[in-house]
Design a protein around this nucleic acid. Structure first.
Lengths: 280, 280
DNA sequence: GCTCGATTCTCGCAGGACGAGAACAGCCCT
DNA sequence: AGGGCTGTTCTCGTCCTGCGAGAATCGAGC
């Protein structure tokens, strides 16, 4: 999983395309602590010795950190197995974030209706800072979601219809910043993997206010999406549906107009609604 | 919500019955960082100034911490709203923990079957360190789970049948340690709230290998549970069902024998299975 | 242009984190 | 019981790093 490992001396030199962790300074202890946390998370269960070796932190220091983390409830010490695992605080934070992220219920109802109306799995996404987050999915056994998609942070915006809408809604510098943290990883042979091609495509998406994606995310599957805008006309989210590629040509106009209609509904709810997550 | 707030001077003095955060020492920065993280989590969204005031940490220090946390991906800085919220790393850790915690699929199948056979919502719980964790729930619209119950760490072991099994499976010192972190909060008028009464009850539970709970957790609802044991006969988990209280007297023997049967199945799978989470 | 809040920078001091090494605690093995 | 081994905690002097008052910058709103 390549946790952004703690490097004792030099840092940076991104591996799998991680955030270009700028050179280092600052609260070193914190970074170590997080490195520990992430290593534990990646391993599921790990001993103090292992941690010490993998992170190149001397044993006493590892124990000091571990004990802090255990005392704070972020780790548990399973004495029986001489190992450490994630603790209840981590669960609590995750839950809290989930609850904060999930789309408000009027929006969920809109998406559910969209799902029923078109007979396709339906999705809703918003920004969170620079990230794109899927905040609701509506599907059923006969119209299942795209399998790699799940509630939460979305890592392949360049390959999904709603991702393209969201990318298209960013300013150029925002998009630059985004791609410093996310690679254009190819997911199928048809995934767009070149920045320039993508930019041209996004321009088109932004002007049409609509995005299609044809087997760029999952082979044999197609998605369509439109933007949800706030009062000032800025894109703040996206409504999308997915379907088998062979159905995509049946009734594209119906899909498009339907998406626009429901996106309008969602916009209306969000404008009157509570705190909406803005762009960065 | 009472996040275990960071106290600049003296600490401790548990509020709502939190872990008796032993006197303080150690890596102060870490505690501050976690205090920030938890305050953000509790508030959903909060400004730097607010944090500084609530935690009594000078502004520059708050910013230092915030910037670290943002750089590490544990927070996001929503510049548009001058506020900070939880970041994607938190989500990732939470997800990782969820996946680690969830009961293995053979056990899930056993619980599903139990649910179908008895026509009652069914549950499976294990230890994680000193904590009790619900690792699977099986229910349906006509036999719904007890509403406050959800997947994850369980805070009211004294008031649920499976909680009693788990408590009964602990050694005396373990139980002491457990109750240093968890209060005997009354959830209904029938909740057992005295340590002595509970101990007597647990003794009975442990000898019979079976626990009932009658409207001690939710008014009008009853639960029954039996233990799941490892090769050495130690309790490592619990299988439980819940039902409306008025049904409880219909067929207690059937419920009991059925629970024992399915707990046996679960035991068998867990013994052959992979890493099972042991007691502390 | 002005004001007020948000955010970052400067810098000298002091307290705390660091880590080698040793000590202590269990556990297994025979 | 007695070795030998791993896991875990303690000791302690050095050194460094995080700290925080205050000032400087930035940026949006009017």
């Amino acid at each position: 999983m390549s946790t952004a490992a703690y490097r004792p001396d030099q840092r940076g030199s991104g591996e799998t395309g991680w955030r270009t962790t700028a050179r280092e300074e600052g609260v070193a202890t914190l970074q170590r602590a997080f490195a520990v946390l992430e290593e534990v998370s990646a391993s599921g269960s790990i001993s103090a010795r292992e941690l010490s070796e993998r992170l190149s932190i001397p044993l006493p220091s590892v124990y000091r950190l571990l004990n802090e983390l255990v005392a704070a409830g972020y780790l548990v010490h399973l004495r029986a197995e001489h190992s450490f695992e994630l603790g209840h605080k981590v669960f609590g934070l995750g839950l809290s974030l989930q609850r904060r992220i999930v789309a408000p219920s009027p929006v969920r109802r809109v998406i559910d209706e969209l799902h029923r109306t078109l007979g396709m799995a339906a999705y809703f996404a918003v920004y969170r800072g620079l990230d794109v987050v899927l905040t609701y999915l509506s599907d059923c056994p006969s119209h299942p979601r795209l399998t790699p998609l799940r509630f939460g942070f979305h890592e392949a915006a360049h390959a999904t219809a709603f991702g393209k809408i969201m990318l298209g809604g960013m300013s150029a510098p925002e998009r630059d910043a985004y791609f410093e943290g996310h690679s254009l990883r190819p997911l199928t042979p048809r995934t767009i993997t070149e920045r320039e091609t993508l930019e041209a495509h996004l321009l088109d998406v932004a002007t049409r206010g609509l995005a299609w994606e044809q087997e760029e995310f999952v082979p044999g599957q197609t998605c369509a999406a439109v933007g949800v805008r706030n009062g000032s006309g800025l894109v703040i989210g996206s409504v999308a549906v997915s379907m088998p590629a062979r159905n995509a040509e049946d009734r594209p106009r119906q899909v498009e107009s339907c998406l626009r209609e429901y996106a309008g509904h969602a916009s209306r709810y969000l404008r009157s609604g509570s705190t909406q997550l803005g762009s960065p």
